[in-house]
Nucleic acid binder design. Structure first.
Lengths: 271, 271
DNA sequence: CAAAGTCCTGAATCATATG
DNA sequence: ACATATGATTCAGGACTTT
């Protein structure tokens, strides 16, 4: 199913993964369809070309060096992000919310773009990793966090979903604060190919998406992920009784996501 | 002492608080003088005109609604921030570092400005407050964090100070991560006028500045705070055996800072 | 079978010296 | 400017192996 097919049948949008460029596909979709969007763009890491090798075990660190993370400049990156966020804004229902994720490399580009486009930020949420990779050379602090920005599509938006009981459950404190302590994705959850290599370099943990979806959507709500990767958003949405639409440009990722989501066993819905 | 006087005698710059517009004063200073800059600009909170009132308590919430936090638009705010950061970049030594602080309201404006001006981010540091004010409306998460950005003045900068022993001491984990758990400023540390009102609405805790200064400067280093408020940076610098230059446009704040710093008892220097 | 020990790896803008 | 070699040392989680 491609974007053209989809545009011809917009009413059937549910529990689908589309293989194609996210901007093109989004432009073919009708407006105001999404209750929630998970926006996980490339981080534009600008890593050094040389590989980092561990001294003790001589294994190399697999830094992110993928075509989709290469941009000529911040200006090019900004253009890409803003084009995407404009389309997302059109696709969001008036009461819909967006979650963006990033690190210091890119999150300020995303945050400023959101504000410039008229989105209204509700929270920044700190994903505080329990098992971040240490900084061996000890020339700066170990980066143990990623930042999520939660926003509505404009300042006057009303009626968005916020599950305050869940919010409290997720918090490290008695009150529902914006810091979430969670491990990174590893073990059996991490998708690997037949040779044991990870399918996607930056697969998100399901626990993170579970918090996002439980906090800000209701059962039956419609979740969109325009850069779906290996489909964590779709897998969690399916498990929690939410509908989803994923878009992914990389055929390998899309195929892995499709296979993964087919295997999901839905949990009993607790509204 | 004003900016003109200062510019005429640039070599005497140490342990001084200057009352004046930070841009004007900075423009009168010689370049490459600062080992460390603490940059704590207005947060551009965009609070509603009417004061928020707690639904269960009869007291008004003490939002920040000061002349110095009023900007017409993001564009005006950005211009102000970028003008300041350009001057700071000139004032930083090649090995100097800058610490910027903010919340989601403004930190992305600051972060994007840093990157656009060629600064190179070393870390974002999450100040995770132990005693944040709970969110009484329960329509979003309680904001328990502020974000610090630590950066060098350009990508190739070398030789900046990083005390890895201190870094580990500050961390919640065994490794030196970028999340710092600290209470907000309160109690005797909080400066109050004769009528018991707080002198400054957003006085930073000394413990936060102590971490910044110990982590990224050596005894005798020169610390600049161009928007010094009531002088937390200067007080901590003085206590820890670092030199300082503070700039503050508000006469009340500047006077309070001067009085405060005069009372500081230096601690024995441990290099 | 349980417990203990080994090995690998994770969105990383990680140094310095020499040619 | 780039490429290459060298050097010095972090932890948590999970998979796997050994006791």
């Amino acid at each position: 199913m491609d974007a053209v097919t989809l545009a011809a049948a917009p009413t059937g949008l549910t529990d689908t993964i589309l293989h194609g460029d996210c901007l093109e596909v989004m432009r073919g979709l009708p407006g105001e369809i999404a209750d929630c969007v998970f926006f996980d763009p490339p981080y534009f890491l600008q890593l050094p070309k040389k590989r980092l090798v561990r001294w003790n075990v001589k294994t190399a660190v697999n830094g992110v060096d993928e075509p989709w993370d290469r941009f000529e400049s911040f200006a090019h990156y900004d253009t890409f992000i803003r084009d995407c966020l404009r389309e997302v804004q059109r696709l969001l229902k008036p009461s819909g919310t967006i979650w963006c994720i990033g690190t210091y490399h890119n999150i300020h580009r995303v945050g400023a773009a959101l504000q410039d486009l008229g989105y209204w930020i509700l929270n920044d949420v700190i994903w505080f990793k329990t098992n971040a990779m240490p900084n061996w050379l000890q020339v700066r602090l170990t980066n143990a966090t990623e930042t999520l920005i939660w926003a509505v599509k404009d300042r006057t938006a009303k009626g968005y979903t916020f599950d305050k009981v869940a919010a409290r459950e997720f918090s490290m404190d008695k009150i529902a604060t914006n810091v979430w302590r969670l491990p990174i994705c590893s073990g059996h959850e991490r998708l690997r190919d037949v040779e044991g290599r990870k399918v996607h370099p930056t697969q998100k943990p399901e626990a993170l998406l579970e918090r996002i979806i439980r906090l800000s959507t209701k059962p039956g709500d419609f979740v969109l992920d325009p850069m779906a990767g290996v489909g964590t958003t779709g897998a969690v949405a399916a498990r929690l009784g939410r509908r989803h639409l994923l878009i992914e440009a990389n055929a390998n990722y899309a195929a892995a996501a499709r296979q993964r989501i087919e295997a999901v066993v839905p949990e009993p819905v607790t509204p």
